[in-house]
Design a protein around this nucleic acid. Sequence first.
DNA 1: TTTAAATTTCAGTAATTACTGAAATCGCGG
DNA 2: CCGCGATTTCAGTAATTACTGAAATTTAAA
Lengths: 173, 173
Amino acid sequence: MKLTPTVQRCILHWGEMAGRWGVSRSVAQIHALLFLAPQPLTADEIAETLTVARSNVSVSLKELQSWDLVSVTHVLGDRRDYFQARKDIWEVLAMIMDGRKKREIDPTVQTLRDCVAEGKRDHETPQEVKERIATMLEFIEEVSGWYEQIRGMPRPTLLKLMRMGSKVAKVIG
Amino acid sequence: MKLTPTVQRCILHWGEMAGRWGVSRSVAQIHALLFLAPQPLTADEIAETLTVARSNVSVSLKELQSWDLVSVTHVLGDRRDYFQARKDIWEVLAMIMDGRKKREIDPTVQTLRDCVAEGKRDHETPQEVKERIATMLEFIEEVSGWYEQIRGMPRPTLLKLMRMGSKVAKVIG
DNA sequence: TTTAAATTTCAGTAATTACTGAAATCGCGG
DNA sequence: CCGCGATTTCAGTAATTACTGAAATTTAAA
């Protein structure tokens, strides 16, 4: 796999963004590579193309699979794994948001619930602070619930909604 | 500033989430502390409460200010800076999203535009790959534009919309 | 000004996270 | 069940990022 300068630029940029998204550079680069690649690639091809260790590719692919962004295929008469990334950008976004919800939002909701429960028994924390925690919890739960609803909508509806932009306000009065 | 166990739990959890959000633990903890604190705090109080170096507090506060999440106030006859965090959770979310858009989305759009432009001149990158890059760009621009519209809506409208959940689909037909 | 508190900067170090390469394991074909 | 290619694991190390503490700078009161 020889990378064209254009593709290389994309992959490098993805790698640079990685830190801000809480994934390693390798994970981001491999994802970019597989997202752009016209055909599925073997782990060895990936390692060679990006010049990273084969084992690093293995671990990174596992992570990408845990996000449901990458899957394995096979070709007849070849027992190596071939990896491909989701190409549908809407689904890619959905997978990332689902993943982040699961890893960040849900545990945070749990912690806040614990804090609110603990607050009932706790007389040293000022009322105002307890309320702030409770408000935060309600807010996250509300946004979370909204996301679940949006998440379940058929894509054409979602697209229509998005294209309406702030005009939805008019319709709902 | 003595932390109650409940508050401490929140701050620690925030700190643990920090990595995933691409900020340092100190930044997240300081933000949590200021968000919950009933009154503005001095940098020294923060340093002492969280047991981190005073200089670390200084740098972290600068970062939080760059996100517009924290501001400085003063009390009469005291020349120290007092720091307070935004308490309105909607605004907090808006600041974080604005910040991430500015730091992650906008530069990515720029890179993708460059790639698409480069693609015109570039005959070695397969058409399919160029298209995927272009599609990605369009997608990000569309979502980005939608966000700007939503961002500008008055809060009550936004709240109403959110509470409708997937029922909006019915209204827009 | 001068002085001293408050804040910031930054070089050095600590802590964390990412990556490598060798060894272990897996799993299919013979 | 043996042998080999493919994959994974993991201990060690490299690279990165975060944090500290001392020194420099700023700020404002005297």
